[in-house]
Design a protein around this nucleic acid. Structure first.
Lengths: 247, 247
DNA sequence: CGGGGGTTTGACGAACGTCAATCGGGGTGG
DNA sequence: CCACCCCGATTGACGTTCGTCAAACCCCCG
């Protein structure tokens, strides 16, 4: 495995996105926060393309600290379908019983994860870590909600609508993780990754992006996306942010 | 609501499909079986088109006794996406916490359901009803697994492959519920329902079915489907039955 | 004998995929 | 510093899949 584990200097705290994310899902107590902070002493770095988890087997619990990954399935003839993207603050293998949690996971960019075996224990102890438990449940919740949206996108929207919808969703999620805001956020995904998520070909995704640019609805360059006309995009895509609760 | 509740004559036992189905999911004890049988004293009959549940709100717990229903979402412009079909023996609103369980449910044919509030309580009491609990969990499990398969179908398979895949899945499920076998089973779904599940237009579904018929891979008439070349269809659709466990 | 919902068919156009070539930028070795 | 290279982005040409419109058909049922 091309995995690199490093002890962290205390200055670079990779638990920040996770804290921010989980706090957005449920109110956290001090002990909740402390439990999350404790997992931040090591990180595992993986290169783009690495497989974080195989389908079926559920690896150890982890927190995404940086980079982009995806849940995916690869067909025998090489076709790939991406179920969902994973970004900083997302939990892996904490609510490990459901099928969605057992999909294969692959790194789309270089990825840092924090091994979080502790979290799994804490998440089973609702007495001492009420906020953490709620947040973990809500995270699985949101994943499933996104999967439902994904089905509608793939089944009943055009490529143009799908693309707009996905960009809006990514913007909201990244903003919730503290990476940029809903209008402007990091977008290091290749058009191939987008295509495999949207059920389109790379060439067609490229043309759709060109069109969105020509129409001055988005900008997309050097790893950053700008949604110039966010409101209009929301209409096009029939995008309605799902309530994420908490405060 | 166009709901009709009737007391049942003891001769027509509508719990049979549920018993058969749940037994296939987990070994049942006598008390498990008894709990299931007890819900069978009333049935609610709904006509095709009726809404069993609205999106978001999770109605009372029920067991599908007969007929076909579906989980669905309708877009503001009228487009509809079907997430999953519900058949005899399927549980509704028992594992009510996950988003998938809170989708809208509509009857596609006349449907009988058994009000099963009792079941929800039993399913929370793992001491007295171990098999029931396991079966309920596994039912939710299978639903999510089917949703993942559905995403792959919609995103990465052609209409032809999708259709074959869905027919195979329906055959396996109906056989597990004791309705026909995997080669020959009831198929009262309209082509419009198939289209809304497969993300295709009615016309295109019709042409795909015509082709499958011309190629002598299936027969489909008067509410019954026959998979003439099941093995070959499985290859076409890259269909692999998911392990359903138990015995 | 109508009527209505579902199915089937044809004609046409739009959405999307494939193939292939080119372009462009960042990294790397000389 | 520069040439090279590689991966991803872009573009054009062309073919297929799939959607839409509209009409006909069929069957079941009242």
């Amino acid at each position: 495995m091309s995995l690199q584990r490093r002890r962290l200097a205390s200055c670079e705290d990779l638990t920040v996105p996770a804290l921010r994310r989980l706090q957005g899902l449920a109110p956290l107590t001090d002990s909740d926060r402390e439990a999350i902070r404790r997992v931040g002493s090591y990180r595992d770095s993986l290169p783009a393309g690495a497989e974080l988890q195989q389908e079926g087997s559920c690896g150890g619990a982890r927190i995404m600290a940086s980079g982009f990954a995806c849940r995916q399935r690869v067909l025998p003839d090489g076709r790939r379908q991406i179920f969902d993207f994973l970004i900083a603050g997302d939990l892996i293998g904490v609510a490990a019983d459901q099928p969605l949690a057992r999909t294969a996971i692959a790194a789309l960019t270089p990825v840092d994860t924090l091994p979080a075996a502790l979290l799994r224990e804490c998440a089973a102890d609702a007495q001492r870590f009420p906020g953490l438990c709620a947040a973990v449940a809500r995270c699985a919740h949101e994943e499933q909600t996104r999967l439902l949206d994904h089905v509608v996108r793939l089944g009943r929207q055009t490529g143009y609508e799908r693309t707009a919808h996905l960009l809006l969703e990514l913007g909201d999620r990244l903003a919730a993780a503290g990476l940029g805001d809903r209008r402007r956020f990091p977008m290091p995904l290749t058009q191939e990754a987008l295509a495999d998520a949207l059920g389109l070909s790379v060439v067609h995704v490229n043309r759709i992006l060109q069109q969105l640019r020509r129409e001055r609805l988005i900008e997309l360059r050097s790893g950053e996306a700008v949604l110039l006309e966010r409101e209009f995009l929301m209409e096009i895509a029939d995008y309605r942010p799902r309530p994420s609760a908490a405060a």
